[in-house]
Amino acid sequence: MNLTLRIWRQSGPDESGEMVTYQVTDVSPDMSFLEMLDILNEDLILRGEQPVAFDHDCREGICGSCGMVINGSAHGPVQTTTCQLHMRSFNDGDVIDIEPWRAAAFPVIKDLVVDRSAFDRIIQAGGYISAPTGTAPDAHAVPVPKPDADLAFENATCIGCGACVAACPNGSAMLFTSAKINHLNVLPQGQPERESRVLDMVTTMDAEGFGGCTNTGECAAACPKGIPLASIATMNREFLRAARKAPR
């Protein structure tokens, strides 16, 4: 099939960008979306033009590197990662708009590549359990009820791609932050730092310039790993509880 792509091109962080139109021909429905961009890039290189820069790595939907807004939707029309989106989701003659994640906390580096280090800083603020190597008791010393373990796992599957922020009309990072807080706060091992974790991570999240939550649910609808919207409510509960217990 033949497609028209309109892609955001921006040569550097401080440059202004624009949508540029490209034609790609002979696209196979079996190609992944990124493979379609590979073809475009090979073509651009041979024509002496700059290829489109985009982040990608594992291409199997787990590393969280890739991410672009395709026709207005984070990761495109299917609820999965961009690398797992295939061209069979499109039709011959389609016009496809491709833009980077847009958020003040995710400045564009080049074309479709954005800086998501704000996510790392949120984790650094408390998204861990302090268990230095060598200090651990036997793994069976503390049983974890299966529902708690499952809930922790469900939240722990977050891949940190940033689609939640990109999809949120407010550019909010609540779903990302809540996933890590819920993963750790529900486990017995996470109890000692339960309050400081939520307070510190939320403070950092706010300081990074993410927007506030208005419960639109767009984040959960775009999340390729299906982190539920209820995680945000749980985080709010944890936050209110922590604020009561440790006022500052």
Partner: peptide
Amino acid sequence: VEIIDQCVAQGVPFAREYGGLL
């Protein structure tokens, strides 16, 4: 053997049985 202990202490959500054990 130590690796599993370490990872559980860090909060790695390994699969568990209904009794709460790994």
